[in-house]
Structures are given as structure tokens and as C-alpha cells.
Design a protein around this nucleic acid. Sequence first.
DNA 1: AGACAATATATCCGTCACGGATGTATTGTC
DNA 2: GACAATACATCCGTGACGGATATATTGTCT
Lengths: 116, 116
Amino acid sequence: MAASILKDHIPLTPAVFAILLALADGEKHGYAIMQEAREHTPMGPGTLYGSLDRLLTAGLVEETGLTDDERRRYYRLTPSGRQTLAAETARLEQAAAFARRKGVKPLTGRTAGARA
Amino acid sequence: MAASILKDHIPLTPAVFAILLALADGEKHGYAIMQEAREHTPMGPGTLYGSLDRLLTAGLVEETGLTDDERRRYYRLTPSGRQTLAAETARLEQAAAFARRKGVKPLTGRTAGARA
DNA sequence: AGACAATATATCCGTCACGGATGTATTGTC
DNA sequence: GACAATACATCCGTGACGGATATATTGTCT
């Protein structure tokens, strides 16, 4: 009954989603994760390492054990983590689509400047 | 100038997004908001009324003052609230699109709630 | 070589959102 | 009249968040 592992974490917090997303295209070390995640959502070191601990405990992320720099600790998504990221991505798409169906219009003009 | 009012609330928590989303297609009373929001994300009464208070204080939601039932208190989005909802909807779309670009695949099989 | 910023990880702790429990009153139903 | 559902509200424990802080190493500038 390991299927419930997935839904136990959804919806993800914006911070956790940004962390998993940063790891989606390959393993990264903590500092690099934080820098990329900060492009999407505010992120202090406490949030990063605290969230990483929870993700490691939950089995969504694991350490690689390898490093190119003594200081760095590299992390990668586990299959479960990748599946959770996929599920949350789908949830976000559905939520946004639902909003559009409700008549929520795209932003116009000066407020539309979004970070990417 | 007033543009910062928007970003001060983004990213929204899943609970707050669900509440604003429930109000997107018209005014509703608290209990109805909670019922609809629960279809998207777990939601206790403490979260609902606590979040409503914050949203009222922040000026994203306002009371209508009208009711068809003595017990009910109706709420609607303010222009600022609607704009915030639009901004967060756009953020979710961009986050999901970014994930897709990173190779996050749609869910397959039993874990996929809705067909795409 | 020495000074200083940036990199990199980690912990501590105050703040605040979350959400279950609980309470009260009203409406609907049998 | 009894009981469930509706409807709103408050209380409070838990836990995520994120700034502050600490430590060590690497890179850069003069």
C-alpha cells in the first residue's frame, strides 16, 4: 500500500515544490538548490536545509555520496520524489485551468512582470 | 506604487489560493467556501476562518453585507483580490510549464486522478 | 602574504499559518 | 420534541518558514 506515500505530501508548500523542481533536471548541491529556488520563491538557508531534512526523511530526496568539492553535498530526486513532483505539477496545472474556467483573466500591463 | 500590495502575498499558500478560487465565480458564504475549497485541498474551519480574517485585513476579500439567511455571511473578492488570484494563477502556470520544460512527465497509471 | 568577499553547510529560534477540537445557535427533518 | 446538518467562531498545539548566526573553505584583489 505504498501508493499513499504520494498523496501524503500533496499539496506541497511553494518552498518544497521549488526545491524538488530545482532537482528535476539533475543532482545539485544545497547552495545551488537554494540559488535556483530563490528565483521562484523567497528562500532562507533555514528553509532550505530544514526542508531538505524533511525530504530526506520522507524519502523524496537522497544524497548521491559523490562530490567534486569537499564542501558540497549533492542531492538527487528519488523515484518517489520525482513522482511527487509530477503529481504536484499536475495539480498546479489543474488548479490553474480551473481558475481559467472560472474566468480568471491573464494579467495585463505593469503587474504582469513575472520572474523566471 | 500600489503594485507591491500584490507581490506581498505571492506565493499564496494552497489554502488561501483555494479560498480565493472559490470566490472567483461569485460571492459565497463561509461554509460554502469551505466545502468547495475542500475539493482542492484539506481545509479545517480554523484554516478557513483564520485565512478569511487575514484576507479581509489584507483587503483581498470583503463582506457583501447582504444575506439570504440570517446565519450566513457572504464574501466577495475585491479588485485587489482578483488581481492577486490572477497573478498567482499565472505563477502556477509558469511553475508547471517550467517543470514540463525540465522533463517532468505527466503521471501514468493508477496514480493519475484525471485523464489528460 | 594578508584581507575580504563569496561559497557552502548547518543550527537556533521567534513568528505565524495550519487545522483539529470544541462551542453556540439556527434550520430542517422525522 | 429530538436529532442531524448547517453556519459561524475561537482556542491552541504542531510544525514550516526564514532571518540570524556560526564555521570553514575557496577565490580574488592588491
